[in-house]
């Protein structure tokens, strides 16, 4: 089993490599992260700018897709975070498109999935967390802390609840980022493992290939749902900052 057996390395696909040779990854080195993030930005731009270039009253297919995603996120921000959250709509839209296209592009075989890296999702989640917290204090001052002081609970319970609320508040960016990175990492690693089985099984290769095909459909769903969930959770956190009194 050790030699010539199954040699599957499911996590090799996540390695950050410099694009133009060499081993040293400095902060400015163009790596595969750079390449796939650039492609993500390009794809989002292609949809939102090039796709909607016609400005037609009766939209083309690409234009209606762009408009659909626009009104989908617009409505989400409006419904979940309230009307006064509309001024943050461009940022929410940026997050959604970036995560969505990074997830979808990562499904291309041999692609590098930028959103499967905790560093990336953690920065996205921390940006939301820090800006939302700062926004809450700027808008409401000390009253923002009432978010942790549950008025509807009996008085002796309130300090305990406050501790729990505070804890869950600080766990938010952790679960927010690990959910996205974990879901994608899990899917890609499992797909790699199954693909490795196909290579090792020889004649019976079609069984894992079928499994990978089914898994791929699931991963497509997961990619879209995780982008949706990441965005809607950002909207919920934003709502807490705008209207802290539950």
């Amino acid at each position: 089993m050790a030699e010539g057996g199954i040699d599957i390395r499911p996590v090799d696909q996540f390695i950050v490599k410099p694009l133009f040779g060499g081993d040293v990854v400095n902060w400015y080195t163009p790596t595969n992260v750079t390449l796939w993030m650039a492609l993500t930005v390009l794809a989002a731009t292609a949809l939102m700018v090039y796709g909607a270039r016609g400005r037609a009253v009766i939209p083309s297919r690409a234009q209606s897709m762009a408009e659909l995603s626009y009104s989908f996120i617009y409505k989400m921000v409006e419904d979940v975070a309230g009307r006064d959250a509309i001024r943050f709509f461009p940022y929410i839209m940026t997050i959604f498109l970036f995560v969505l296209f990074a997830n979808l592009l990562g499904l291309i075989p041999f692609a590098f999935t930028t959103t499967s890296h905790i560093a990336v999702t953690a920065v996205l989640a921390l940006t939301v967390f820090i800006s939302v917290t700062a926004l809450g204090f700027v808008l409401h001052g000390a009253k923002f802390l009432k978010l942790f002081w549950v008025d509807s609970a009996p008085l002796p319970l309130r300090p305990i609840l406050a501790v729990i609320e505070l804890l869950s508040y600080f766990v938010r960016p952790v679960s927010h980022s690990i959910r996205l990175a974990g879901a994608l990492m899990a899917g890609h690693a499992v797909a790699k493992v199954f693909a490795g089985f196909a290579a090792a099984l020889g004649a019976a290769f079609f069984i894992p290939v079928l499994a990978v095909t089914a898994l791929y459909a699931l991963e497509l769903l997961v990619a879209v749902i995780q982008a949706y969930v990441f965005t809607i959770l950002s909207c919920i956190y934003l709502k807490d900052a705008l209207h802290p009194a539950h």
């Binding site: 690990i178 959910r179 974990g182 879901a183 749902i225 949706y228 969930v229 809607i232 959770l233």
Partner: peptide, 12 residues
């Protein structure tokens, strides 16, 4: 979807 995401996160 939020509920599914929370439940799924723990599995992840």
């Amino acid at each position: 979807f939020i509920g599914i995401a929370f439940a799924e996160a723990l599995g992840i």
